[in-house]
C-alpha cells in the first residue's frame, strides 16, 4: 500500500491528550516500532477504527512503512478496519461458555438487536442499522468460572441469562 494508491481525504493526528500519552509510550522501548500495538489502540480509541489515514500517521510516527502497519492491523482481531457500532458486544463461544449455554445468549442478542453476527472481514453485517451496536463472536475471554460471559466495550458481564442481557442492554 504505497501512499499514491490510497486517497487520504482528511489526515489523522492525535489530539493533545493522546499525543501526551504517545510521547510517554515511545520512551518505553529501545526501538520506536515496538510501540505499535499501544499506539494503534490509542488511535482506534480516538478514531473509532483504523482508517488508511490512521495507518499513514502511525507509520510516520513510528518510522516504519505503511505496509508494516497494515500488516499488524490485519493480524490482530481487536483492530477494526471498518466502522463499528458505539457499543461492541463480544460474545464468548469457546467450550466452557458453550457448556453453559452461550448459544441461548447469542441467539437472544441476535433477535433483540435484529442483526447478524459480524465476521472479521464484514463488520457491517453485525452492526445494527442505527449504528449503535456491533455483535461479534470471540474466542475465550478467560472468565470460564462465570460463564457465559459477554464483553460490551471494556466491561465484562458474567453468568448471563436472556433476562440479564435485557437488563444490561436497557441500562446502557
Amino acid at each position: 500500500m504505497s501512499d499514491e494508491l490510497v486517497q487520504i481525504e482528511t489526515p489523522f493526528a492525535f489530539n493533545e491528550e493522546n499525543q501526551r500519552e504517545f510521547d510517554e509510550l515511545i520512551g518505553r522501548y529501545p526501538i520506536k516500532e515496538a510501540a505499535m500495538l499501544p499506539t494503534l489502540h490509542l488511535a482506534q480509541r480516538q478514531e473509532g477504527y483504523i482508517t488508511p489515514a490512521v495507518m499513514k500517521y502511525v507509520a510516520e510516527q513510528l518510522e516504519v512503512t505503511v505496509m508494516k502497519v497494515k500488516d499488524v492491523v490485519t493480524f490482530y482481531p481487536m483492530f477494526f478496519e471498518e466502522p463499528v457500532g458505539e457499543y461492541v458486544i463480544r460474545v464468548c463461544h469457546t467450550l466452557p461458555c458453550a457448556l453453559r449455554d452461550c448459544k441461548v445468549v447469542l441467539e437472544h442478542l441476535k433477535a433483540k438487536l435484529d442483526t447478524d453476527i459480524a465476521s472479521e472481514t464484514n463488520l457491517a453485517k453485525g452492526t445494527t442499522d442505527d449504528g449503535k451496536f456491533t455483535l461479534m463472536k470471540v474466542e475465550c475471554l478467560a472468565s470460564c468460572d462465570v460463564a457465559p460471559v459477554i464483553m460490551i466495550n471494556d466491561d465484562l458481564y458474567k453468568n448471563l441469562t436472556p433476562e440479564k442481557v435485557d437488563e444490561i442492554l436497557d441500562n446502557l
Binding site: T94, L95, P96, E139, C140, A142, S143, C144, D145
Partner: peptide, 11 residues
C-alpha cells in the same frame, strides 16, 4: 496473555 480456553487465574 492468558487466552487458553479454561484458564482464568491470572485475571
Amino acid at each position: 496473555d492468558e487466552s487458553e480456553p479454561g484458564t482464568f487465574s491470572n485475571r
